[in-house]
Computed example of a mutant assay.
Amino acid sequence: MSSPVIRLLLCEDQTLMRQGLRTILDLEPGMEVVGEAANGEEAVRRYGELRQAGLGPDIVLMDIQMPLMSGVEATAAILSAYPDARVIMLTTFDYDDYVFESIKAGAAGYVLKDLPAEELAATIRHVAQGEPFIQPSIASKLLIEFGRRAKGDRNQPQSAESGGEELSARELDVLRLLAQGASNREIAQQLCLAEGTVKNHVSNILSKLQVTNRTQAASKARERKLI
């Protein structure tokens, strides 16, 4: 008896990359691309439509950096509505923060776009069987970062006693860029977040530092050696 077909939703904002992935995966035995999305919001909407139509998807291939809503945010939204969803992050970024944020969002896999086609297909099959997968080169970095964070490095949330007013790791990331003069849009692009999410982080930062504007926030951050 043949194995059931693995139905895929491709979420990638670059048309050429998305079409290339579709061509490769449609040729792979036992796989079928049932939908595409060009931004994070469309990914969430399309996933829901396919589920309601009984078309899966069994696996979502999700790019991290997409317009309107990042891949990480889209993954979190999909998993919030459908806890059994399986998402593989397919990206050019192997930055530690991206990996951590993806795992926190509920991603079941994380691989780079330079992965050979046969290895991508194998990853999809692993995750479809319920086996989480992180590309080995990324996994080694992840273990190092886990150890570093466990020792209480600068990425740990700052406590009130240390002068950080309990800023989260992500808020510290935003604060550093804010202090460099970056706009919300520029911060969103660098951290692969939606601009609305950055606005929320900035608002939280101002509140926690008890200041009223970005200039004061940058000044207080330097004063307290947060950046």
Rank of each mutant, 00 (worst) to 15 (best):
A160G: 13
S159H: 07
D96A: 15
L27N: 12
I227F: 09
E28T: 12
A160M: 13
E49M: 11
R154Y: 08
A76F: 03
V60M: 09
K220S: 11
I187E: 02
D173Q: 15
T197D: 13
L90T: 05
I78R: 03
A122K: 14
A117W: 10
F93L: 15
K220V: 13
C192S: 15
K151R: 15
H201C: 12
R224E: 03
M89E: 08
Q129A: 15
A128E: 08
S140D: 13
A150F: 12
Q189H: 13
E101G: 05
Y95W: 12
E166I: 05
C11P: 00
I227V: 14
L68T: 10
V34P: 02
L16A: 11
G40Y: 00
L16P: 00
R170L: 14
Y98K: 11
C192V: 08
E42I: 07
E73K: 06
D173L: 14
E12L: 02
L8E: 00
L143G: 05
I59A: 08
P136Q: 07
Q158C: 13
Q52H: 14
T91G: 11
D13W: 01
A37S: 07
A37W: 00
Y82M: 05
S159A: 12
L172K: 15
E166V: 10
A37P: 01
L115E: 05
V198C: 07
G40W: 01
Q135E: 15
R154C: 07
E36Q: 13
R222I: 04
P67Q: 06
P136W: 02
I134L: 15
N200Q: 15
S3P: 01
V202I: 14
Q156K: 14
R154L: 13
I138F: 08
A182W: 10
L61A: 07
Q180L: 12
P116T: 06
G56R: 10
H201R: 11
M17N: 09
S80F: 05
L9A: 00
K151A: 14
G163Y: 05
M66S: 07
F146G: 11
I6V: 09
A107V: 03
I227D: 09
P83V: 03
G56L: 10
M62T: 01
K199S: 15
F100Y: 11
P132S: 07
E49I: 07
A160W: 08
D58L: 10
V44D: 02
V174E: 02
E28W: 06
Q216N: 09
T197E: 15
G152M: 09
G163K: 06
L175D: 10
P67A: 09
G106C: 07
E32S: 12
E32M: 08
F146Y: 12
E28N: 03
A117L: 04
V174S: 09
E32I: 00
I78P: 03
R51G: 02
A188Q: 05
Y47D: 02
G48F: 05
A43K: 07
R45T: 13
A179M: 11
A188S: 10
Q190Y: 02
N155F: 11
A85I: 07
I88G: 04
R170T: 13
G71E: 00
R154F: 10
S162C: 06
P4D: 01
F100M: 14
R45V: 10
E161V: 07
E161D: 14
G56I: 06
A81I: 00
M69C: 04
R22G: 12
